[in-house]
Design a protein around this nucleic acid. Structure first.
Lengths: 119, 119
DNA sequence: CAAACATCTGAACAACTGCTCACATGTTAG
DNA sequence: CTAACATGTGAGCAGTTGTTCAGATGTTTG
């Protein structure tokens, strides 16, 4: 009585065993949520641009702002997101804070995505 | 008078040459936009779950709905997004439409992301 | 200490996103 | 043809997101 058509379809389309097997092999909900959250961070032009800018060199906040032509505040907000996802790391030098890519993971993920976009 | 502090910082933090070089090496705005759009597609729990479900087997719409415990309509909407990003492909068999991963790119991108999440 | 500077942060708002609902489309069986 | 079914789709709404603005924090210099 809940979803009659769905139950019916479950038997028509594939074996119920297949569905159960898929369920068994899927990572936990928390892991999948974290994964989506990670990709969400990459899913914004500004953040992608920031990450790409850091491909070449370590940069400070207002350099990035100047580079992308956006407010320093906006950059700071986004750097916070990137940092809390461990995609960039910060290094303070006096008044200036320099940001750099956290590790090569970031490059690899972006490179994979770029492959798909450019194919 | 526009952004005096930004220009000042540009000279303090790094050579202007560096900024220009970074700009020169960055992909075009359109490409970066497309890249962000791609990652945005991965940046949703429902879509990630659908993709992961398709890791194991080709599935029809209502199987996925049953698997994830969500409406068939919601699945259909998301499959449309996934299809227009060329992440999944559809195959019609009578009344049923089977979906599968478009290519191994999808697996690679997700695998890279998973590495970062699980590290 | 105060002033200047680089960065950070909270609030507010406009834009976007994903879901639900109702219905449309397309396919098969009778 | 009609009925039943699997899927697709448009409108509307609640929740989320990225930016701007104003001001706070932290650092160096005098």
């Amino acid at each position: 009585m809940d979803f009659p058509e769905i139950e019916r379809c479950g038997f028509l389309c594939v074996h119920e065993d297949t569905v159960k097997q898929v369920l068994a092999e899927m990572p936990g909900d928390e892991t999948l949520y974290d994964l989506a959250e990670l990709f969400k961070v990459f899913g914004d032009s500004t953040r992608i641009k920031i990450l790409y800018a850091l491909f070449e060199a370590e940069l400070c906040v207002c350099d990035i702002a100047q580079l992308l032509g956006i407010t320093q505040s906006a950059v700071s907000h986004q750097l916070r997101v990137l940092k809390s996802s461990r995609l960039v790391k910060a290094r303070r030098d006096g008044k200036t804070v320099f940001y750099a890519l956290a590790d090569d993971h970031v490059r690899k993920i972006i490179a994979q995505g770029m492959d798909h976009v450019l194919e």
